[in-house]
Structure formats: structure tokens, C-alpha cells
């Protein structure tokens, strides 16, 4: 009885020893090209820009309020629009990747879908300063019609 139980365990390991198709190892840096993620995978917060260098952020700071750790800071400026009216616009959308917990609350809070989670997960850098990112590109503007 006792020996039977030991042998049955050895049968299992022996089975896996001889059946190499069961191997699960993923050779990570080599399979970078073929890695797949769920479309909702949370890598880091990015602000998509279209081909005209335009984003959808109005600077409403809903994400800044929603963020539990103060990861997001929005610096706004007053800008004169085409119709001559003064309008609030973002100067810098500062994102501290080092503080982010990838909880997705900012994405849910954004009323204009200006930010989203990218699938980039390789965040390591040699200098901490590089973790503080400005998400809006230089000289970018808000897409027309987004209020």
C-alpha cells in the first residue's frame, strides 16, 4: 500500500519527464515579439495622440482626483481659442510611474477617454527621474469638439 502510493507519485513525475510537450516554460526575452496580452492589460498610463498631434484631454483633473496615490498631476494654462474666448487647457500632464499602482481608477474616471492603459510592462530604468513622465507631447492640442 505504502509502496504503491510512492510508485504512483513516481509514475506522475516519470510521465512528465518523458512528455516534453507539457513543458510550460516561456523563454521571455526571446518571445517578446509574440507575447500576447488581454486587451485590458494594465501596463502604464498613456495619452493617445492622433496624427495631427492632438489629444482628448480637457484638463478637468477628474483623473487626478480619482487617483489614490497622487500619481497624476495636471498643470493647466489659460489659452485663447480660435473664437477669441479664454479656455483652460493642459500645459503638462505629469505621470509618476514610480507611484502608480495600476488600479485603473483614472481611466474609469476620465470623461473624454483621453488616457488609456498601454500594454508596455517593461518599466525598469536606471534613473528614477525617468519614471516621471509628461504624457502630452510638446505643442499638442486638444481635438476639436471635445469639451
Amino acid at each position: 500500500m505504502a509502496i504503491k502510493s510512492l510508485v504512483s507519485g513516481m509514475r506522475l513525475t516519470g510521465y512528465y519527464f518523458t512528455h516534453h510537450k507539457e513543458i510550460l516554460t516561456q523563454e521571455y526575452p526571446d518571445n517578446r515579439e509574440t507575447l500576447t496580452f488581454g486587451e485590458r492589460f494594465r501596463g502604464e498610463v498613456v495619452m493617445p495622440h492622433d496624427e495631427n498631434n492632438e489629444h482628448r484631454c480637457t484638463g478637468c483633473t477628474a483623473c487626478e482626483i480619482a487617483c489614490p496615490n497622487g500619481t497624476i498631476k495636471i498643470l493647466t494654462k489659460m489659452e485663447v481659442g480660435e473664437d477669441g474666448k479664454k479656455k483652460k487647457a493642459i500645459e503638462k500632464f505629469v505621470y509618476h510611474l514610480g507611484m502608480c499602482t495600476f488600479c485603473n481608477l483614472c481611466i474609469v474616471a476620465c470623461p473624454t477617454d483621453a488616457i488609456k492603459m498601454s500594454h508596455d510592462f517593461e518599466h525598469s530604468v536606471f534613473d528614477r527621474k525617468q519614471l516621471t513622465k509628461v504624457l502630452n507631447k510638446p505643442d499638442s492640442k486638444i481635438v476639436k469638439g471635445v469639451e
Binding site: 516519470g14 519527464f17 507539457e22 523563454e27
Partner: peptide
């Protein structure tokens, strides 16, 4: 290598 194959791994490669 033996350990790796028994544990569904590749081992040193």
C-alpha cells in the same frame, strides 16, 4: 535537467 523536465520546465538552456 531532470528536475526541470519533471517540473514542466526547460532547465538551463
Amino acid at each position: 535537467k531532470v528536475a526541470a523536465f519533471m517540473q514542466l520546465r526547460l532547465g538551463p538552456n
